[in-house]
Design a protein around this nucleic acid. Structure first.
Lengths: 210, 210, 210, 210
DNA sequence: TATGAATGAGTATTCATTCAT
DNA sequence: TATGAATGAATACTCATTCAT
């Protein structure tokens, strides 16, 4: 029994090692330029072993999302105190999302690639669905805040899921827009945080009861 | 003289031929999976000729943006009548953008790749900047609508550029979110148009004076 | 242990296989016209494997020099008996070099390319230096013969290194001259051996005391 | 008639323009890396025109030898005064050859390539023979000096053609040896001139009557 | 389970040469 | 004669994936 447990633990460890190495390499080079060789070397495992734990390069790449989601969820649960008002919760959520984006901007690349399409065909549908489900969890959490706001009487009776998707889309759209840096500043000095706050100011004004 | 003109015309034609073929192939396979061989075959030109007109695969890919921008601008100018109110113009713009997105959803992939970064390193900075400038033109048009709304006294005195970027980010974020289809419906039946309208309803309520 | 040894042996074997195939192809077609595909086919290994053992086409080409140097050194050590006089040793060396040249005239092509320069830029400096050092070993051996001749009192007190380089240059110059064959006989019936002997006759007369 | 002459002159001019441009490019990049495009651009002629004057890239390359030979011959005739003794003439010839080599080291690359073989197959035999004949002219001139030395009674009755070839081979061998520079100094500070002088000292001592 | 040697299909790019005008 | 647009064959090198040990 002890042996079985240890084996299972070792397996988890290997998986974690590979993911850590993959993160380093993918985030440094990008999906296209990263190579399995480099990941194998960095993880101090053989290339063959990589394929024992992940079906393909693409699936390994997407597996990093898991980690991202977990990280984000953890950050959220620490900060979203139930004593806060709905508006405060919305603002807090946005801020945590922003903080997460600042700390791990590369997870967004994965997300973008996931939606982009080139990847979609190279990953098994089951795996793909798994990724989606996790994203949905996050969205449900946001929806519950909006429901709470409506319940409290602070928010108008908006369509909660539509509103959730809008908020999510806005935040992502802003982060995406701000990714482009350096060559040409059409942001005119605005950064993610400022834009996000401005968007919330207006959006909340539009949601809140008179 | 006639001869020079005809040559110039032929050259334009070739360029157009290549772009058309490139669009077909890139939009079917994606940047990564598309091959220059296939584009050459589809354009009924030799591979060498492709490189006579475009420096690299990446530059050819981005060159499709040009066309997209032109298309969008043309659609806009046809629909945005100056007699409309600011709110109507905003809604119209969103609708035109939506229509454009429906007709040419693949142009968004290019945009996503452009912002994503892997491409940034493979294209000359000048060319990159050109792409960015064209995007800015569109944004300026939207800003002018907001300014008009403020001038008319319909909108509150919001930061016009921030608001512009927010609207833009929201639309893109929504389209981006909705791109994911088929495998798992976290949209719960909502489509781009519905989400966009819902977002505008709320956002405009937040902007408009009392 | 046995397993490790066998693996190492197999690796050596592969390397040898590649070198043999490379020799065939390079010597038949020349550096420029030879292709890695052909070498792969001839070695009955995949192209990828070639690159597992050699960094580039150029490095593979130069690696043949190693073999040439070893071959030459082996021939020398068999023939240069220490009982011979300095003059006999010089003549013997020249004769061995000539024999080597006759048996492996293609190694000279590599040497020519090595000095020619186009290659210099395509090979890592370390590798390049290694090639050079091996050539120097041969030269040192010749110098020691001249020093011996001076010590014996047979040769005048000439500059030993200059003399070494001169002898070497002369032999190479002759071989190089004679390479040109077939199209036009400006050699007027002279061959490498005759020219080399004639050169030695005169050169040794110029070196020997009185 | 005047028209015919002018046309002929223009043709010569074009040819010269191409050769000049070819020299620039070939000597800067080497045979392998130089491109016909660059030569066309530098000569301010179209690529097609290049092929009107030269059959192929290789033939254009070798055509530069002509010019080299002419240059060398001209230098020789200016310096080789008939009043000089045979020994002085030999030394003078060597010095002129050295000067030529210093001023136009790149012509040697062509010569080396010519003999190397890759080129031999890509050029028509007639053209190849022409190149060889010109080299022979130079050798005949050297032979005549040796004959003069024998006639004067200064030199022993050596085989004049063998001796000629030996001298030529020695000089070329030395220049070739010295081409390798930079990475590893097995020359130990010796340069072409010093080696050439040392070789002549010894060789002439071996030729001269007692 | 872990290895890592071997694979070989896959591809962007180059460039000498041609030929219609 | 001069052009230069078009060609398309040619090739080095990569890298995800497999599989015998």
């Amino acid at each position: 029994m002890g042996i079985v447990e240890r084996k299972a633990k070792e397996k988890q460890q290997r998986r974690a090692d590979i993911l850590r190495a993959a993160k380093d390499v993918f985030f440094k080079k990008g999906l296209m330029s990263a190579t399995m060789d480099e990941i194998a070397e960095k993880s101090e495992l053989s290339k063959g072993t990589l394929y024992l734990y992940f079906k393909s390069k693409e699936e390994l790449y997407l597996s990093l999302l898991d980690e991202g989601d977990r990280l984000f969820m953890a950050m959220m649960q620490k900060e979203l105190l139930p004593t806060l008002s709905a508006e405060e919760l919305i603002r807090k959520t946005a801020f945590v999302y922003y903080k997460f984006y600042r700390q791990h901007p590369d997870y967004f690349n994965i997300m973008f690639f996931l939606h982009h399409g080139d990847l979609e065909e190279k990953v098994s549908p089951e795996f793909y669905k798994t990724c989606m489900c996790q994203a949905e969890e996050t969205l449900k959490m946001i929806e519950s805040i909006i429901q709470k706001g409506i319940g409290e009487g602070t928010f108008r009776e908006v369509d909660t899921w539509k509103t959730t998707l809008n908020l999510w889309a806005t935040a992502n759209g802003i982060f995406f827009l701000c990714k482009e840096k350096g060559h040409h500043d059409f942001l005119k000095g605005n950064n993610e945080q400022q834009l996000l706050e401005h968007a919330l100011d207006i959006y909340l004004k539009g949601i809140k009861k008179k």
